[in-house]
């Protein structure tokens, strides 16, 4: 009994240590966002200070909020579009004849096999000629192309796990294929949909590389705007920290809100298909 208690205590200490190590950078960032400018560079670092919202206020008055809005729009549009196109495609693949599905699935996965940097210059040139450079539509389209394969591959095992007999029963009751898909199969795969949507959103939200290459000022996203605070004449630490905190916030809130689906969805996807 005593040994079990000691073991439990050690486990808790271990967990606490890991948490401290992994969360310390985030805590440091958030603290810096609330520190007065004169305390940011203080040595030794001040753990106790009078919090201020001055950095957030500066961001609110600057172009940063526009970039933040651009991030929200492109990530949301790309995620919704990827789900709308990818989920039915995954369902069809799950129900297709096995060999054909595997071949098609492999082709879809090809786009994820090439490092994104390989696409940068072709995308840049194509966008320049088509006028999509520095547009929200152009950026959302890029995110869509990369997210689509992720959606198809993540959702396929979820649909494969739903017995076809359910659709057959719906069909006997007069339901067409779309109705059966939307009303019978999709609700059963909702945890997977949630997990996949979060991953798509995270991919688009956190992207720096394509946003850097394909935008200038109009469609600039929040991650690029934060780097913009690394100025020639010095780094604006307060703004960097406040910007970083704001960039983290939606993902954190969203993830906490759907964490039940996320855990269930990710683990289910991991052991099937």
């Amino acid at each position: 009994m005593a040994r079990a208690r000691t073991s439990d205590s050690l486990a808790w200490v271990g967990i606490a240590l890991v948490l401290v190590v992994t969360l310390a950078p985030f805590l440091w960032l958030v603290m810096m966002a609330f520190k007065p400018a004169e305390d940011i560079a203080a040595w030794p670092p001040r753990l106790f200070f009078t919090p201020t919202l001055e950095h957030f206020a500066t961001l609110l008055r600057s172009d940063f909020m526009r970039s933040f809005g651009n991030s929200l729009v492109t990530s949301t549009v790309a995620t919704v579009a990827a789900m709308v196109l990818g989920v039915p495609a995954a369902y069809v693949l799950a129900r297709m004849e096995r060999r054909a599905a595997r071949r098609l699935g492999f082709l879809i996965l090809l786009s994820r096999m090439v490092p994104p940097i390989a696409f940068a210059v072709p995308f840049f040139l194509a966008y320049r000629y088509t006028g999509l450079l520095d547009t929200l539509a152009g950026l959302a389209l890029v995110y869509l192309t990369f997210s689509l394969s992720l959606v198809v591959w993540m959702m396929r095992p979820f649909f494969a796990a739903v017995p076809p007999a359910l659709e057959e029963a719906a069909s006997i009751d007069g339901a067409g294929p779309w109705y059966a898909f939307l009303r019978v199969v999709l609700p059963l795969a909702l945890p997977g949909v949630a997990a996949t949507a979060i991953l798509c959103f995270l991919y688009a939200w956190n992207d720096f590389f394509f946003a850097l290459v394909l935008t200038r000022t109009e469609a600039r996203t929040a991650p690029v705007a934060v780097v913009g605070f690394l100025n020639y004449e010095g780094w604006e630490w307060g703004k960097i920290a406040a910007g970083g905190t704001l960039v983290m916030a939606p993902v954190l809130i969203f993830s906490i809100a759907v964490r039940r689906f996320l855990v269930h969805g990710l683990t289910a996807g991991a052991v099937k298909g």
């Binding site: 840049f124 320049r128 290459v213 000022t217 690394l230």
Partner: peptide, 16 residues
Amino acid sequence: SGFPVYNQQADLELST
């Protein structure tokens, strides 16, 4: 733009 952002974007723009 910020210094590093400008340099990346200008380098790509000029090189093409």
